[in-house]
Computed example of a mutant assay.
Amino acid sequence: MLQEEYIVSAPGKAILHGEHAVVHGKVALAVSLNLRTYLHLQPNSAGKVTINLPNIYTFLSWDVSSLQALIPDGTGDLKSTSEPDPEFIQKLRDFAGLADQSTDTRNLAVLAFLYVYLSVFSSSRALPSVTMSVWSELPTGAGLGSSAAYSVCLSAALLSARGAVTCPSFGTGHTARWEEEELELINKWAFQGEKIIHGNPSGVDNAVGTWGGVLRYHAGKIKPLRSVPVLRILLTNTKIPRSTKVLVAGVRDKIDKFPAIMKPVLESIDAISCTCERNLIKMASEATPEHYTVLEELIDINQHHLNVIGVGHPSLDALCQATLAHGLHSKLTGAGGGGCAITLLRPDTDCSVVQKSVEELQDCGYDCWETSIGAPGVLLHSPSSLKDGVLQILNSY
């Protein structure tokens, strides 16, 4: 039986620069959002495994004895992960009554939990009775890394419960971070969860959820940037649905049709990412108004480039025009074609300016959050550290 309770959280993610160009070998900068997913894992004395996911209206419970028969053969080495076994996945689908090849968010969240839970405890041959409750500030399906934040929380909590990573000390604070080697193990198992949900993910989203801050992604290699500033932003969801697959294919078609035009645009987007990276590193020691001006100019240039390669949308044009009327600079983040955008806020941006911008965007039917980028990655929380509202939600299920 589980002896301790664990409260963990992980951030969402946005792309600061380099979306679409990264598919063609260019540099992208992924950043953590200070909108977080929270997970509470606690002992269950009823011999049950219970999961409560109120954001997606999912509440399920199984007897531990029924799950025992599903335990896969484990090597005992949690550091050595392999591709998820399709037969095992199908076994889990059949057990939970999940439709084959379902892309439903609820089904995939349940499947990811069962896979990571059973895999992590496979070598012990003894499954703990637990209740897991998850609540998120992140909207699902918006390209903001909600599934990765869930997978990172799942991995951190279950590995901690298994004793595969140590429980870090809170010291004088109310949150704690794992050591680098343990973060690598958490990220590895979070990536397994992402594979269950997305099939063939890049690994960027779960890496952002694990390490936080700003990550440089290039040619499949992920490098966290050290000592970068936390930046205020306005995050806006236009709520316009889009298909990432279709948008990526459209960009590829344009490159094939107009290589002499499109390839220099991709090179320019790459240069934007690299220039922004250097600027952020300089800002870590001293952030001046001039540094913020550079960030704003890069945002404007990149947004124009993204329109050129065909991933803009009238909703995003309206958003950029509305914020620019108040002296604020915006760009799409992610796949484009609708979806979400980020607006940079300087440290001295007046609250009234932000409020007027939010009101205008909400009048367009958009959702807005004032938040920040560069937030810490996965955290272990003491119960007293969470806002009363979050803890109340987690404890009410």
Rank of each mutant, 00 (worst) to 15 (best):
L114Y: 08
K263P: 05
D205F: 11
L324P: 07
E5M: 06
R226S: 07
D63F: 14
E277V: 05
A335R: 11
A335G: 15
L16H: 03
V353N: 08
G199W: 10
L394G: 02
L183T: 15
L316P: 04
P168G: 14
D205E: 03
E19I: 02
Y6N: 02
L344K: 06
G199H: 13
S66F: 12
A190K: 06
A249I: 09
N187C: 07
V265T: 06
V64I: 01
P84N: 05
N187F: 05
N107D: 15
S160P: 05
T236C: 13
H313S: 04
K254M: 14
G377R: 00
G310N: 04
A69V: 10
V311Q: 07
T75S: 12
S133L: 10
P86S: 05
E5V: 08
L379H: 03
V378R: 06
M1T: 06
W369Q: 00
G212Y: 13
C340H: 07
A10R: 00
V248R: 02
V214I: 04
L2Q: 07
T50S: 12
A156Y: 05
V228R: 13
D300G: 07
A260C: 09
T371A: 00
K13H: 02
Q3S: 13
K239H: 09
T343Q: 09
S119I: 12
C340R: 03
T288R: 14
L247T: 06
D367R: 04
S146V: 01
L67G: 09
T371R: 00
E83H: 14
K195W: 05
S146I: 03
G374C: 02
Y150H: 02
L60P: 11
R177H: 14
Q392C: 03
A271D: 15
G327I: 04
V27S: 14
C153D: 01
E286G: 15
G25H: 06
L53G: 05
A149H: 07
G377W: 00
S372P: 03
D256Y: 11
T275H: 10
T343G: 11
L379D: 07
A28H: 09
L295F: 01
I89S: 11
E194I: 12
F121E: 08
S385G: 15
A164F: 09
P72I: 10
G327V: 07
I299L: 02
C364H: 11
